[in-house]
Design a protein around this nucleic acid. Sequence first.
DNA 1: CGGCTTTGACCGGCGC
DNA 2: GCGCCGGTCAAAGCCG
Length: 183
Amino acid sequence: MDSYQTFFSCSSATPPASSLSLNMADSHAHNEFQGSKTNGFFGLMSEMDQLPVSNANNVPQSRSLFVGSESTDDDVKLAGKKNVGKKVRKPRYAFQTRSQVDILDDGYRWRKYGQKAVKNNKFPRSYYRCTYQGCSVKKQVQRLTKDEGIVVTTYEGMHSHPIEKSTDNFEHILSQMQIYASF
DNA sequence: CGGCTTTGACCGGCGC
DNA sequence: GCGCCGGTCAAAGCCG
């Protein structure tokens, strides 16, 4: 069944720019899940590539797996302003997941801090933040109006700490998947 | 009782 | 200058 595919169909296309440090969880990847043994589905997130797309954030591309947007062009718009040094400059990585549920547990602990309605979309967008002390990684979860089976998760920032939950237990992940599959 | 969700208000950026 | 819009805050309530 395709109820919980959670596939990143991009696996076929190998991103030439993958050499960049685009995997947000690679900081400690050596510790937790260097192989693909743990992290059932989300261990795959390291395969995503980032595209310097200018304005494809809202465009529901038919099969495009994810869009990475980077706020590089307009960070200097404040020329002459008292820049605090490190302005924003945080890349965002978005990828689609085929899932029936919104809450995709990737091993980190998230706290929801907002929810807004999105234009051209009848589903709201949820804003989450990593609850690890000092970790300011954020993510947005959005569901497409067209394909309500598609969930777009946008990560912002990188984690610099180990995973909190015990995702080492692969059986736990399997049970989770079964729970999802029961929908 | 503590952590998390909910939800409306608030804020800064941007276009008109 | 004003209003829209996307993102965040924070108080209150919920739940394990």
